[in-house]
Design a protein around this nucleic acid. Structure first.
Length: 833
RNA sequence: GCCGGAGUGGCGUAAUGGCAGCCGCGCUCGACUUAAAAUCGAGUGGGGAAACCCGUGCGGGUUCGAAUCCCGCCUCCGGCACCA
């Protein structure tokens, strides 16, 4: 029981810091493995330490905090860690532009952001904090690189990088704006460099297969990953080249259309282009190859763009028809997909068709639609189309084979198997499975990343750095100005080393790793963050893994999540973890946009959390960001409306003024008391379900409805009846994960002991929530004509009888006899005449 | 362009096959006040005096019944492998 003689205003700026300090000092959310309790690993994607948290972060971390606090109240042993994805481009840019060393700037930013986490009332197990840029973390990133290396999953090959010829530096895609260097405006070209790759394609099939088991993932993310991996079945076919020993190997998903293959197209970068180009065509081919290397992949794959290409002068033989067909190059063929060469079948492929019409290449029909092959074959998208007055159409749909020798009269599908058998029997090709997924390029010609732990010896060649020599430390004294190579290459003391095999002089690899490598295993390090002997202990990973609830931005739906899944599978194969998949349930939140774009420092549209928290307090900010809309949808930021949430919390505060007799066993049984208790239990049910399914906006709405009901009840009956106390207690518990400070404060003012966050989550009582009447909606011919109140146990017969007797229904029936009546129990009667 | 998603009052949204607009913002009117702020109360999709009609981006379909399911289109957002 608590009495407040002089009502005190709600002052978040006063109460919030007090509880933030209390939670931190009491280590409330610091956890150890406890086999007696159900564990729950709640994880939010760790941020890049840009220095300031904005409203997009606030949404992300508030959701994570609600999850952690909610499951704690449910009695789980909840691990909720936080760390920093601290390597990367922005720190290096700041070093170049402002001369601030990343090793100085990054910890400063981390401190600032950590302060902002405290101010938002977000609780973590800070004992597990990590930062990917600290040697005690990247030592193990390097260790894992060596593990991949030993397992044959890391290798080097030549690959192009964006290159600014003026600055003599490699550019990230982000630094290339409209084909030009963002710094100096020079036209960007490509430079071929020997770079490190991870062999993720070896895991393509497994990454695809286990997607089906990830039932706790949103369908859209699973679909995106499935399409990204892009499994297709087809055939690799050899087209002999006139005058060469080596044939051109093409990959096609439509080997059945080979009789219509009237030319071949190689990617401009295809290794055979140089040798097969005739002298007459050389100048044109070279110019085209140069041009193609300037284009981005997105430009090249655009089906809108007019097709371009050049004839190489070479001819190949169609292995099925024996015809001599010309070999072209074109930028719509990518060297990274399939074999980098295609058989062009203009009669059966839109792109090939456009290309053939433009360059006057022959078009042959090989598939004709069959009437009623399948119902639904009248789809206009796949009907034969004659473009630009061509005499032969393009048709990509299913049908029957024509002009195809032994395949004639077969149906699509049948013909695919038949032609593969023929090709295999004659040694001209074979059925294959192809993936769109490419190996993961991890080399970066940058300073601020984990050095790749490899040494090159003039005598022994490439050698891994011995484990006991890890970490390969980033030197502190570096010149950041762009020029030629990775900044590390200019640090003699770093580059010059000794060969671990022969002890002779050797040079270090000067590339660093893609930051996605750092973030592909951080969730494992959290399980055992201080381990100096290994990345993490197996038994600790076994206790905590998999992550039960992973929350983060939808922009990570493909790359980060795919790489983390890949890492987990490799580590499972190495016996280091017991799970095949790292993230059991995934929630991808939408972005908070401002001026129509994702908030980011580079776009200058950031709304910092500080402003919000200083003006209204953390609880208002948290509740408002949860209330703003469905968390999986993007939301355009506007601070009008925050005011309403602030008012709501003031109203809640006032609900706790006056005497509230918590703990009274006696519940009055007046209508009003029963109605309030019903509302309490409906709210328990709703808020519980909404938190479980991440519908926080409707959970907030539900507690507002309960607060409104309490207010009406109080105005009529005061605060001293037990029903009110029951409502008061439950409202705080239900709001506690979302608005942790005000609920903690009011909990103590009500006389509650311990922390509200250590209380049990309220239990829904169906009996108290039940209502004795239901409102039935009566429709006549699909339109609502009346509503009638009936006892909740009304039978179908009674409901229909009552509906038919309604005056309004009689009026709309207009003397006609109902032909059909549909009854939805407890909800609706639909009468059809 | 390709892959994925979203479009509902003046605004954020609710309803995921069964009452379109819950909850909140904004606005209007009223109470309290010397006045204002704060607070409290009433109202608020469009048309119509009313009965009622219309209405969930656009066009079609399925159904007794569609914001919700299906087909086609338009617009906006995210990802597209070196931003993370």
């Amino acid at each position: 029981m608590s009495t407040n003689d002089a009502p005190e205003r709600y002052r978040p700026q006063v109460i919030e810091p007090v509880w933030q300090r209390t939670w931190l000092d009491s280590h409330m959310y610091f956890v150890e493995p406890d086999p007696q309790k159900r564990k729950l690993y709640a994880l939010v994607m760790f941020p890049y330490p840009s220095g300031d948290l904005h409203m997009g972060h606030m949404r992300n971390y508030t959701i994570g905090d609600v999850v952690a606090r909610y499951y704690t109240m449910l009695g789980y042993n909840v691990m909720n860690p936080m760390g920093w994805d601290a390597f990367g481009l922005p720190a290096e840019n700041a070093a170049i532009q402002q001369g601030i060393h990343p090793a100085v700037r990054t910890p400063d930013n981390i401190d600032r952001m950590k302060e902002q986490f405290f101010k938002m009332g977000i609780v973590y197990d800070w004992d597990r904090e990590l930062a990917s840029c600290f040697p005690d973390y990247y030592k193990w990133t390097q260790w894992l690189f060596l593990l991949f290396y030993e397992r044959g999953l890391a290798y080097r090959k030549l690959a192009p990088a964006n290159w600014c010829p003026k600055d003599e530096t490699v550019l990230a895609n982000e630094q290339v704006v409209d084909g030009r260097c963002e710094r100096c405006g020079t036209e960007v070209t490509k430079k071929d460099l020997t770079q490190w790759f991870f062999r993720i394609t070896e895991y393509a099939e497994r990454l695809l297969e286990s997607l089906d088991q990830l039932e706790g993932w949103p369908d859209r993310v699973r679909t995106m990953q499935r399409n990204w991996i892009g499994r297709s079945t087809g055939a690799e076919i050899a087209f002999p080249l006139s005058g060469y020993d080596e044939p051109v190997r093409v990959y096609t998903t439509r080997p059945d259309t080979i009789y219509g293959a009237t030319f071949l197209v190689l990617a401009p970068e295809h290794p055979m282009v140089k040798q097969i180009t005739t002298d007459k065509q050389r100048a044109a081919v070279d110019a085209y190859v140069m041009q193609a290397r300037k284009e981005s992949e997105i430009e090249r794959l655009s089906t809108d763009k007019e097709k371009t290409g050049v004839f190489t002068g070479a001819y190949a033989t169609n292995p099925m028809t024996g015809d001599q067909i010309p070999v072209w190059i074109a930028d719509y063929v990518l060297v990274t997909y399939g074999t980098g060469a295609i058989q062009a079948v203009p009669g059966g492929d839109e792109r090939d068709y456009d290309f053939a019409l433009k360059y006057g290449l022959p078009v042959i029909s090989v598939v004709e639609p069959v009437e009623a092959v399948e119902s639904g074959s009248n789809d206009p998208a796949v009907a034969p189309v004659y473009k630009n007055g061509a005499s032969v159409p393009v048709y990509t749909g299913p049908g029957v084979m024509v002009n195809s020798g032994p395949l004639n009269d077969m149906l699509t599908g049948q013909s695919k198997h038949a032609v593969i058998s023929l090709l295999e029997a004659e040694g001209k090709g074979k059925g294959t499975i192809n993936y769109r997924l490419r190996d993961w390029l991890i080399s970066r010609q940058r300073y601020w990343g984990a050095p790749i732990p490899i040494v090159y010896c003039p005598d022994c060649g490439e050698a891994p750095v011995p484990v006991e020599q890890l970490p390969v430390l980033l030197p502190a004294d570096v010149e950041f100005k762009p020029g030629g190579e990775s900044p590390l290459a200019r640090v003699e003391s770093f580059v010059n080393t000794t060969c671990p095999r022969c002890g002779g002089p050797a040079r270090r690899e000067t590339d660093t790793m893609d930051t996605f490598v750092d973030s592909s295993w951080y969730f494992l390090r959290y399980c055992d963050p201080h381990n100096a002997e290994a990345p993490f202990r197996r038994d600790l990973a076994d206790y905590w893994m998999a992550v039960d609830q992973y929350t983060g931005g939808v922009e990570h739906a493909i790359l980060h999540l795919l790489y983390s899944r890949f890492f987990t599978k490799v580590l499972a194969d190495a016996g280091m973890v017991g799970v095949q998949e790292p993230f059991k349930r995934l929630f991808t939140q939408g972005m908070i946009t401002k001026d129509g774009a994702k908030m980011s420092k580079s776009k200058g549209n950031v709304v910092p959390v500080d402003e919000m928290v200083e003006k209204y307090g953390a609880d208002t900010g948290r509740l408002f960001i949860l209330f703003i809309g469905p968390p999986e949808d993007d939301a355009e930021w506007s601070d009008s409306g925050a005011e309403g949430t602030y008012r709501f919390l003031h109203r809640v505060w006032r609900l706790y003024e006056g005497n509230i007799s918590i703990g009274s066993a006696h519940i009055e049984t007046e209508q009003a008391d029963r109605a309030l208790l019903r509302q309490v239990h409906l709210t328990i049910q709703k808020v519980t379900a909404d938190i479980e399914r991440f519908h926080f906006n409707t959970a907030v709405s539900a507690v507002m409805i309960l607060a409104n009901a309490m207010q009406s009840y109080r105005d009529a009956h005061g605060t001293q009846r037990a029903a009110y106390a029951e409502a008061a207690r439950n409202l705080l518990l239900l709001m506690a994960p979302m608005a942790p400070h005000i609920t903690e404060e009011l909990w103590h003012r009500l006389g509650g002991h311990d922390s509200i966050h250590r209380q049990s989550w309220p239990q829904f009582d169906a009996e108290l929530a039940a209502s004795d009447v239901v409102t039935l909606v009566i429709q006549v011919n699909g339109k609502v004509r009346d509503k009638i109140e009936m006892p909740s146990d009304v039978s179908q017969e009674e409901a229909i009888e009552a509906a038919l007797q309604s005056d309004k229904v009689q009026q709309h029936l207009n003397g006609k006899t109902p032909r059909q009546v549909h009854y939805v129990p407890g909800r609706l009667v639909s009468i059809v005449t």
